[in-house]
Design a protein around this nucleic acid. Structure first.
Length: 496
RNA sequence: GCCCGCAUCGUCUAAUGGUUAGGACACUAGGUUUUCAUCCUGACAAUCGGGGUUCGAUUCCCCGUGCGGGUGCCA
């Protein structure tokens, strides 16, 4: 039995994209389901586009999601190195072999000539394609150019006739006409391999059984198939995944919302929610189950259940799912995540504020506040906002707004006076929703007023808002001193 | 332009050659409530168009349309 091996092969040109994360996840799930290996390989064959920190960002993103690789850069493995720029001698060897076997040819055309050629082709409404002039150079001409040190690239000799069949595991057989396939550049003039060469050589050498990648690679797969044949390698299984679309149309991009995986973390999404959500975008186990742990995904994942249509990436359902996972956190776990945010996030001010405030509370208070807070927060960011907004609020009272619709000014003043006295009866350690709510409600029953008469002004005095959390939750968040302070200020604004 | 892929509620998705085309999110109505949120109950909402094949097609085939991708000495 052969071991299933899959890989994720990012190029370090930017941050890990949420769509890339999903490709990695599916490759990982398939490997783990089959007790195989998942490999991380860095495709850094384009020096010009390389960005500092990109690889670190990609690895950090994968780790955050729990997509752990069995072999890869730094970690190593039997088939290393796992960074393509460290494997140039390998590609050179195969390039030399292809040249010796007459499966590739030297092309001396300058980038300028190629650009002109393409422009002309487009003007004539032809498909832009290399015109193969160098494919028909005589040995003498080639020798002469080499002697004069004319730079050249190596191009694959694509058959002039016939077809190439690509077999995709979810789409079936796809036939391409050789006449539509360009003589692909395999080695650049500076000696660097292109993606196509490096990718095929590495997938073979690293014994990759399933190439799971985005649909954008489908059009270049026939070139890869031809290359596998030219090199005498057997091709792996190809699985071309759907790609995320933006609501506004087109591929997801920064223009239409967030695309960087870690930006979702910084906004306060939990990795469990992200994994669950993206797994269900383009894959479905054909049941009505909505929540999946990583282990359940590994167990249930099937390539055959992958969808081919491109899903639109929208965050509404992600928000709902994130709240689900947020609710499962204990207050201690939530606080730990918050503190992690400070060390990880570039925009720490809010999280810092929250952490400082939260750490000053008793465990009893922390637990009670969290118990209520998670009902109204979809992300960790909202958790912080939903508390800090009230804690640090300077309220200017508008007397009219303090009075409930069914009440009046005089009554409200009296109510606030009595309420302040009632509140003063609570000890600081008892200032919890579980005590405040039943006792204040019971007290209201002993008075001539209704719930609305008392609770509306109380809530407004504490929040300064017509729509806010319950007065008991606010009191608990603010603590006795500030609660009494705000109630007093509110009362005074009515007296004035 | 050329090549390739794809097409079920607004979104993510089930299902079937014969079903009241199912679920989730969102939206919406009602209940609970001092407001918001939560929670409970209900409603709304889809097979892209045209031809075939068939007793019957949303499902299979063809064409069109739309959307997406590719068309680089990028990956």
């Amino acid at each position: 039995m052969i071991t299933i091996r899959t890989r994720f092969a990012p190029s370090p040109t930017g941050n890990l994209h949420i769509g890339g994360a999903r490709s990695a996840l599916f490759a990982y799930l398939w490997a783990k389901k089959n007790h195989g290996q998942f490999i991380l390989r860095v495709e850094d064959t384009d020096r010009a586009r390389e960005k500092v920190g990109a690889l670190e960002n990609q690895m950090e993103g994968l780790k955050w999601l729990g997509i752990n690789w069995d072999e890869g850069p730094k970690k190593g493995g039997e088939y290393g190195p796992y960074v393509q720029s460290e494997r140039f001698d390998i590609y050179q060897k195969y390039a030399a072999q292809l040249l010796a076997e007459d499966k590739v040819y030297r092309c001396f055309c300058t980038p300028e000539r190629l650009a002109q050629m393409r422009q002309k082709q487009q003007e004539n409404k032809q498909a832009p394609r290399y015109d193969r002039v160098c494919r028909h150079l005589s040995d003498d001409e080639i020798e002469k150019k080499i002697q004069t040190n004319t730079p050249y690239v190596l191009r694959l000799k694509v058959p002039e006739q016939g077809t190439v069949e690509v077999y995709d595991a979810i789409r079936g057989a796809i036939t391409f006409n050789c006449q539509d396939i360009d003589d692909q550049v395999l080695v650049k003039s500076d000696g660097f391999p292109t993606y196509h060469l490096a990718n095929v050589v590495d997938d073979h050498l690293m014994k990759i059984t399933h190439v799971i990648r985005g649909e954008e690679w489908l059009p270049s797969t026939p070139k890869h198939v031809l290359l596998y044949q030219a090199l005498g390698f057997s091709a792996p299984q190809f699985v071309h995944l759907s790609i995320f679309l933006a609501k506004a149309g087109g591929k997801m991009s920064k223009r239409h919302g967030e695309t960087s995986l870690l930006a979702f973390r910084d906004k306060g999404y939990l990795s469990e929610a992200i994994v669950n959500f993206i797994a269900l975008l383009g894959w479905n186990p054909k049941t009505e189950q909505e929540y999946f742990t990583k282990e359940e995904l590994i167990e249930q994942f099937e390539i055959s259940k992958l969808n081919t249509a491109n899903p639109v990436f929208e965050t509404e359902k992600l928000d709902w799912m994130n709240q689900h996972y947020l609710k499962k956190l204990s207050s201690g776990e939530m606080f730990t995540k918050m503190k992690e945010m400070i060390s990880l996030n570039s925009d720490v001010a809010l999280y810092k504020l929250f952490a400082e405030w939260f750490s000053g509370l008793s465990v009893k208070h922390q637990e009670s506040i969290w118990h209520n807070l998670k009902e109204r927060s979809k992300t960790l960011e909202e958790v912080a906002v939903n508390t800090m907004n009230y804690v640090n609020k300077e309220i200017v009272y508008q007397p009219q707004e303090l009075i409930w619709k069914k009440s009046d000014q005089k009554t409200t003043i009296k109510i606030l006076e009595n309420l302040i006295e009632k509140i003063k009866e609570f000890a600081k350690e008892d200032f919890l929703v579980a005590n405040l709510e039943p006792q204040i409600l019971a007290w209201i029953k002993t008075t001539e007023w209704g719930n609305g008469d008392v609770l509306w002004p109380m809530r407004f005095a504490l929040s300064g808002e017509k729509k806010s959390p319950s007065p008991f939750e606010l009191a608990e968040i603010l603590g006795p001193a500030e609660t009494i302070n705000r109630l007093t200020k509110a009362k005074e604004s009515l007296n004035a």
